[in-house]
């Protein structure tokens, strides 16, 4: 049973780490918008295009 004297403090450290990570996530705004990111993974990867510039044009030829 003595092993829990070691394991439980380790778990406490992990909990501390989990709390820190959670605070960091909240603080950096990761819970502000729970919808848009979910759509990102459905999108096909395409190189970003500058909004101000016209597109690469027709690729048909």
């Amino acid at each position: 049973m003595g092993i829990i004297l070691v394991l439980i403090p380790i778990s406490l450290v992990l909990i501390g780490f989990a709390c820190w990570a959670f605070f960091w996530a909240v603080g950096s705004g990761q819970f502000e918008d729970l919808d848009a990111q979910a759509w990102d993974i459905l999108a096909e990867d395409e190189p970003a295009v500058d909004f101000e510039r016209p597109t690469r044009g027709g690729r048909r030829c």
Binding site: A36, W39, A43
Partner: peptide
């Protein structure tokens, strides 16, 4: 929800 995605992405590309 797709609207959110669209606006966020379009703004980030501006």
């Amino acid at each position: 929800a797709a609207c959110n995605w669209l606006i966020t992405r379009a703004l980030l590309q501006t």
